[in-house]
Simulated assay, not measured.
Amino acid sequence: MVETASSIMHSLSQSIEDSPAPIYARVKQAICHKISSGEWQADQRVPSESEMVKALNISRMTVNRALRELTDEGILIRQQGVGTFVAQKKAHSALFEVHNIADEIAARGHQHRAQLIEITRTKATMEEAMNLGVRTSHSIFRATILHFENELPIQLEERVVNASLAPDYDKQDFQLNTTYDYLMKVAPMTEGEHLVEAVMASAEECQLLQIEPSEPCLQIKRRTWSKEQLVTTARLLSPSSRFQLFGHFHR
């Protein structure tokens, strides 16, 4: 049975707790409860500001603040002239570990697909040689792979690989076996480092990731070693609206 706007608003009003907290905070809490309980699903349109003002008998400024903060926190998405919707839950990756992106996506119950954009075998540039600890004449692979989660681009992977440590890298079917799968077989990772930054994507990257030029991205620059040899460097770019990093630690 499809809920009407009035029944949705009645349910929301009943969820607002009677507490000393500011009303905007209680409205936020009620909306978050609807989402976390599964009553409001991802991509579902939520009541408009006007509907909330009328049904909850509170000011537009109060409603606007609640919706604005929920949007800033990535819980809601507001589309100008269309409405406000429940955001898709962001994918997340481990902050202190290196995992197979296909496994992470599968663990969320979603479908992974990889699209090979380009792969070449060539000689390392000065910058690539310095990053891999090799000479400029050393043979490397350069690859660009686009990862999808349920057919939505989730990560653009630009990778440079030491060809002497992974000689068949360019012969892999990256739909069946990810970069992680192959490299862990031929040069198992024993050490890694990564640098995380917020960046803006180029026009070409925006097109591949299917995002607006104004959307910031999360960039991870990573290097991994096998024993004492540098195997690969990678730049991983993900839209901020679809991806987050998560870490758990203790003393």
Rank of each mutant, 00 (worst) to 15 (best):
E39G: 02
P216D: 07
Q88L: 07
V134G: 01
I105D: 05
L165P: 00
P22R: 02
E51M: 04
H10Q: 13
L12I: 12
T71W: 01
S226P: 02
R108D: 02
E39A: 12
S214P: 00
A143D: 02
V53S: 08
Q29C: 04
R68M: 04
H99R: 15
Y169L: 01
C32D: 03
Y180T: 09
A201E: 05
Q207M: 03
V161N: 04
H92W: 14
P216S: 10
R222T: 12
S15I: 00
S137H: 14
V82I: 07
E128I: 01
V231T: 06
F141R: 10
F249I: 11
I8T: 13
Q229R: 13
F249K: 11
G38W: 08
H248W: 07
Q41K: 15
F249V: 08
N162M: 04
E157A: 08
E73R: 13
V98A: 06
G133I: 10
S240E: 14
L195P: 01
R113V: 02
T122A: 11
A234V: 12
H248S: 12
Q155E: 15
R45D: 01
S11F: 06
M61L: 03
I154L: 15
E191T: 08
L183S: 01
Q44M: 11
A129P: 10
Y24G: 01
M184N: 13
A234N: 14
G74W: 05
K221R: 15
T136E: 15
T224L: 13
K185H: 08
S164T: 14
T224G: 03
I145R: 10
T232N: 13
E212T: 11
A198N: 04
W40I: 07
T122L: 15
V63L: 02
A30W: 08
L176K: 14
M184D: 09
P167C: 07
H33G: 00
E204Y: 05
H112I: 04
P167G: 09
A55Y: 06
K54Y: 02
E104C: 10
R65A: 09
V186L: 05
S13K: 13
D72P: 03
E51G: 05
N162I: 07
E104Q: 14
D43Y: 14
E128H: 05
K89C: 00
V199P: 09
A166M: 05
H99V: 05
Q210A: 12
L237F: 03
I58A: 01
V161C: 02
R142V: 05
I101G: 00
F174S: 04
F148Y: 15
D181Y: 11
E128F: 00
E127V: 11
R223C: 01
K171F: 03
K28E: 09
E128L: 02
I35L: 03
R45I: 10
V186F: 08
T120A: 10
S164V: 09
V186T: 14
P213Y: 07
I220M: 15
R251A: 10
Q80H: 11
L67M: 12
H10F: 05
N64H: 08
R142E: 09
G247N: 10
E39L: 09
A203V: 06
V53M: 12
V86G: 13
Y180E: 07
T136Y: 03
M1A: 13
Q111C: 02
E228M: 02
C32R: 15
E69F: 02
K34S: 00
T179K: 03
